[in-house]
Amino acid sequence: MTFAARIDNVRKTYTLKSEVVHALNGVTFDIPTGDYVAIMGASGSGKSTLLNMLGCLDRPTSGKLSLGEQDVTTMSDDQLSAVRATKIGFVFQSYNLIQQLTVVENIEVPLYYQGRVTTSDRKRCRELAKMVGLEERLDHRPNQLSGGQQQRVAIARSLVNDPYFMLADEPTGNLDSKTTEEILSLFDKLNSEGRTIVIVTHEDEVGARSKRVVRMRDGVVLSDKPSAEENFVISDHAKTANAENGVPSA
């Protein structure tokens, strides 16, 4: 069995004005390749800190964190940047595309920081854009796209470097229920093709689509079980309410 990530007793403490905050208090779990994990929890549970660790944006205070075969626990800033460029695919709540770049240029950005953009890479970017259904809009800029389209560009971008796992932070938080469904279907499809997906969310609808749910509270793992065993409250009512409240779609 290969692992996309192994988290071994990871702790993270911050010191805020002489007050020590334990954001992560000994977290241990593995993410096998091909898994689809939802990390859930209330705000302050430590899920964002864990996301930053997995995304190599932050380092654990203690414990061990391995991504693929690499131990990233004690890597330098530059080394972590290199890991992000080559082996991690971020998808953010607010899409985070670069405004002055076109769709295809946005997809290329991680390659750019790997120090290579070859003709075959270009072709691959186009294929990814096609896969997420944006082959008609390669030269559009982010402000010419709807929210769902922007998030699909972000998903294509997260796959361009063939990462260990796709790391999605509330990827549907800014989308209406219809677009949410589109994005979640895309995740299903990618996972069925063998992509590892780690998704941080507080929405039951999103958590229910994963294979496995890790619940966190106060910096520790509260539960870790297959999503089928979770009691998600997903009512049609919630979906309709979402749409009626006019959650922005673009």
Binding site: G55, D78, V83, A85, F90, N96, I98, Y113
Partner: peptide
């Protein structure tokens, strides 16, 4: 600042 954050997340080193 945000663009810088995005670029850093996508693998830009400080020197980039």
């Amino acid at each position: 600042t945000r663009e810088i954050g995005i670029r850093r997340a996508l693998g830009a080193k400080r020197k980039d």
